[in-house]
């Protein structure tokens, strides 16, 4: 289970990076980056998972006294929650700059933008 999730996350990171490196349309590059960030989140959550344990919520099923032996690690979950929200902010920022670039150059193809190329 952990291995499956972790492998999937790493494969998603690789696919996302491949897309970001090979596409020339700037919107497609941003889509690839969102896939890579989803992969990073899957990897982080799978690191915190432990087989046979439940979610870190203390209710009737998980009494406070036995919490240490029956819940999984809550810290990666808190980190990933933050990462997802910031990921949306980063995507919005990238999209705003991509739109601005389009308005100035009338193209989304970055291979046509060559001023800073060397």
């Amino acid at each position: 289970m952990i291995t499956i999730a972790m492998t999937t996350g790493f494969v998603l990171i690789l696919i996302g990076l491949y897309g970001a490196l090979t596409n020339t349309n700037i919107l497609r590059m941003i889509v690839s980056f969102t896939i890579a960030s989803t992969g990073v989140n899957v990897v982080l959550v799978s690191v915190g998972y432990m087989p046979g344990r439940t979610a870190p919520i203390l209710d009737d099923a998980v009494p406070v006294g036995s919490a240490t032996t029956s819940i999984i690690d809550p810290i990666p979950q808190a980190l990933v929650l933050t990462a997802i929200v910031i990921g949306l902010g980063v995507t919005a920022l990238m999209l705003a700059y991509a739109y601005r670039l389009f308005r100035i150059r009338q193209t989304l193809d970055i291979s046509k933008i060559v001023e800073l190329k060397w």
């Binding site: 969102t34 959550v45 979950q77 929650l81 949306l88």
Partner: peptide, 15 residues
């Protein structure tokens, strides 16, 4: 499935 319901909600709504 990885027992992270908080993260699942966030990903479904935001991601």
């Amino acid at each position: 499935l990885l027992a992270a319901p908080d993260v699942a909600m966030t990903e479904a709504a935001i991601g």
